[in-house]
């Protein structure tokens, strides 16, 4: 059985509801870290993380630079930074936007694939952008596992559709199915120390 080390999720338009649904399924003893990029405006305040947390069992943290990656936590990218994964911690950058987005999903996915290879699960959800497709391809290339929200169940179809058209994703699921599927996929993992 594959041993996953990190779950990475990217979403844009309609993302809050999708994240609430998907992450709400994960129990307090969920073993893996979950890193989330949600597209949002540069000026947005820091309410996204606490707002999301109010719907979930797992703690939600807005990432600070070089913060350790620990299992059983949901890490969300701050507005106006890119979020990158190193082996034991996160890094932030203020590099140029990618496909008009900062944070960009591609940046999270690609850095996770570089750091964890086949240990990455990449999940691309609703959105009206093409961000995330290149990153998801890279996760797959490095042996990780890819899941895309069924575009017919997504508020923004462009983003999941773009990924599906450009690669053979491992699973296409409705937003209600993704959470339970992830639980199954990661069942039996030893998880966080």
């Amino acid at each position: 059985m594959m041993s996953f080390q990190i779950i990475t999720i990217g979403t844009s338009l309609g993302g809050f509801y999708a994240l609430k649904t998907l992450l709400g399924v994960l129990p307090q003893n969920f073993p893996l870290p979950v890193a989330v990029v949600q597209h949002r405006s540069a000026e947005e305040s820091d309410i996204f993380a606490p707002l999301l947390a109010s719907h979930l069992q797992l703690p939600v943290l807005e990432v600070e630079d070089k913060q350790e990656i620990e299992g059983g936590r949901i890490y969300v990218c701050p507005a106006n930074y890119h979020l990158l994964v190193e082996r034991s911690h996160f890094a932030l950058s203020t590099d140029a936007p990618v496909l008009h987005a900062r944070p960009a999903i591609d940046v999270l996915f690609e850095s996770a694939a570089d750091s964890f290879g086949e240990g990455v699960v990449g999940i691309l959800l609703t959105g009206m952008s093409r961000d995330g497709s290149a990153g998801l391809r890279k996760i797959k290339e490095k042996g990780g596992y890819t899941v895309v929200q069924d575009p017919t169940t997504a508020e923004g179809r462009t983003m999941p559709q773009s990924a599906i058209s450009s690669m053979a994703v491992d699973r296409i699921l409705s937003i209600d199915e993704i959470g339970p599927f992830i639980l199954e996929l990661c069942a039996g993992q030893r998880g966080a120390a």
């Binding site: 070089k66 890119h82 990158l84 190193e86 890094a91 950058s93 590099d95 690609e110 850095s111 570089d114």
Partner: peptide, 9 residues
């Protein structure tokens, strides 16, 4: 330098 952002650049 931080490996992930440097690699990207």
């Amino acid at each position: 330098y931080a490996l992930s952002s440097l690699r990207r650049r």
